[in-house]
Design a protein around this nucleic acid. Sequence first.
DNA 1: GCGATGGTTCGATGCGCACCGAAGCATTTC
DNA 2: GAAATGCTTCGGTGCGCATCGAACCATCGC
Lengths: 238, 238
Amino acid sequence: MKDGPDIARIASLIGEPARANILAALMAGRALTARECAAEACVAASTASAHLNQLVEARLLVVEVQGRHRYYRIAGADVAEAVEALMGLAARIGSTRSRPGPRDPAMRKARYCYDHLAGEVATALHAKLIADGLLVAAADGLAVSATGRARFVAQGIDLAELEARPRPLCRSCLDWSERRPHLAGSLGAAIAQLAVKRGWCRREAGTRAVTFAPGGAKALLALADGTSAAAGPKSARG
Amino acid sequence: MKDGPDIARIASLIGEPARANILAALMAGRALTARECAAEACVAASTASAHLNQLVEARLLVVEVQGRHRYYRIAGADVAEAVEALMGLAARIGSTRSRPGPRDPAMRKARYCYDHLAGEVATALHAKLIADGLLVAAADGLAVSATGRARFVAQGIDLAELEARPRPLCRSCLDWSERRPHLAGSLGAAIAQLAVKRGWCRREAGTRAVTFAPGGAKALLALADGTSAAAGPKSARG
DNA sequence: GCGATGGTTCGATGCGCACCGAAGCATTTC
DNA sequence: GAAATGCTTCGGTGCGCATCGAACCATCGC
């Protein structure tokens, strides 16, 4: 008796090294061209093309054509969740790279997980949002309290607009490096955007790792207790 | 730049059909002999032996030798989590079996997910435990409230003993069929055992699907509001 | 319009690995 | 002790699929 959905196909698609590298690179949440994907996978353009076709056909990736450029990105949060779960498992059983890259500590500190923040800073924020009563348990996992609602709106996050979309507002995403949840969902994504917009942190090219400005992590955490100024340390209103 | 743990190896192990079938069968939380694993995978004993060795070496499975029998089981909750995440993704993108088995509705209703309950009944319980204040949000995801503590203890669940172990007490596990969380962790496992012990539900051979006795689901849900009698519908105190 | 660039398709190649039956080892049963 | 049973190891086989360069198509820039 073979119970449940057939995981073999999905896992075998993810389990090929070139495709795994493409997916990992796309976990930064940005779209990459076919050429960039080929570089991430260290294969010829023709090989990447075949791999990308498979991933698109399997609905793990979506492609957007702009002239002669094709931009690929992860199809949705559920794909990211599965990849993150596999990363957690791989990290725990020791399937790490033979030679840890220089950015591993940076990845653990803070990184993009698809479209929201992950790592030490993000899990600390998640914990604080709960401890300070902005997020509460709900049937779907987590919900924003009235206190939280006021706080997020005051920071310029349009909750009503987020809620109007089919995507869940709050979702716990088990962090592979911290082994506890960070905040995903549309709210998690909005907070990540806010942090970048405020200049608390910035993204770097070619990696998921995120760099926090001096005082940036503190400012992000201050979201929870309401001491976060609407203007960031650099008054980056643009 | 190749960021994060290397998921290719894990995924490729899971992505081979025979191994995927073995893992799926073991998600019922029971140990299977090598012979039984071979039957689940529909391969020769020698082929299964090679596959099982790979899974054990990769620490996805553990094996216990009893005389001439070798019992294999899933190595831990993190493996189950990754498999469940892949199942969720596979279910959503349509990689279901060509011919849905007769037990698919039963699987959706209630099934074992490793060592705790999943499906409609389990997610309803999770929601009710939260709505009734027995579970609350915490930094690690979920925690038992004082009210919940008293309730579970009254039902014979030794929380102190569970907490003395390294395994998390409460963990949200995103249910592949319901798309919202059911309760995992050592508490989730204890509740599953309680339900079986009380005769509210029973496990069936050869499948993860769980069958609830008449009134059994209601009794399980009544855990949350304290109307669940210490004796089940069949006074199954054994 | 031409050359450069991005990307796809095609065809040939070769490697990896799942497969099986046979043989062998270990344990159990009578 | 012999036969049955569970399981592993071995060796040969063949299929699947990732790979690349060449050819081709589409778009962009001058």
